[in-house]
């Protein structure tokens, strides 16, 4: 009656698959403390967030978070399920497989004296970024684009000396007419 003693294959352990980058959209109640709940859950469950951006939406009562993180598909599904358990989380969608617009905004303060300013401006032009502040020996560049585009811009202007930089983290929207909808 016992199964043959042949070696059974080892049972697969969830989370042991190949990690890749995922983008989650979470629609949450626009209430004090909700960001704390999400952040606390991520920390407590040992999930590592790459970026988290939060802001208003078309509805005043809800906010939208874009969370990028690395993990295998099962681990990220677990993140989504745990997020769902938060009462203030209305909807979670993994849009990693969707055609999407995924942009972030960066402000970069670059050294640019009279000798180098032209060069910096040329790069700004090339990347369709814009200059939002000019001082005697520095410029503030505002750029939007994908993470890779911003990375490339940063790599190019790094040589001039970046005095200060801030990036928002990605926000995302699926292309086409389909929307991340919340049943309310």
């Amino acid at each position: 009656m016992s199964p043959s003693d042949g070696a059974a294959p080892a049972r697969w352990v969830p989370g042991s698959g190949e990690a890749r980058r995922h983008v989650l959209v979470a629609v949450v109640n626009n209430r004090p403390g909700v960001l704390n709940r999400v952040a606390s859950l991520m920390r407590a469950r040992n999930f590592n967030i790459e970026s988290l951006a939060v802001g208003h939406t078309e509805r005043p009562d809800v906010s939208r978070m874009t969370i990028t993180l690395w993990g295998d598909d099962v681990a990220v599904e677990q993140v989504a399920k745990q997020l769902y358990k938060l009462i203030d989380v209305l909807k979670v969608q993994d849009v990693s497989a969707e055609r999407r617009i995924e942009h972030e905004l960066a402000l970069i303060k670059v050294n640019a004296g009279s000798r180098t300013r032209k060069e910096v401006l040329a790069i700004v032009e090339m990347y369709r970024a814009r200059v939002v502040d000019v001082a005697a020996d520095a410029l503030v560049i505002e750029a939007t684009g994908t993470e890779e585009e911003i990375d490339a811009l940063v790599a190019l202007v790094r040589g001039f000396g970046i005095k200060e930089m801030v990036r928002t983290g990605s926000i995302v929207m699926v292309r086409g007419a389909q929307a991340v909808e919340v049943n309310a």
Binding site: A8, P9, R11, W12, P14, V74, Q78
Partner: peptide
């Protein structure tokens, strides 16, 4: 140890909490 748990078994998992399904064992 999950890798040696019930090595011959398929698993049906019923739980009201979807996060429990696939959390520790596939």
């Amino acid at each position: 140890k999950v890798s040696t748990f019930a090595p011959h078994a398929r698993i049906i998992h019923v739980d009201i909490d979807p996060a429990e399904i696939g959390k520790n064992v596939s």
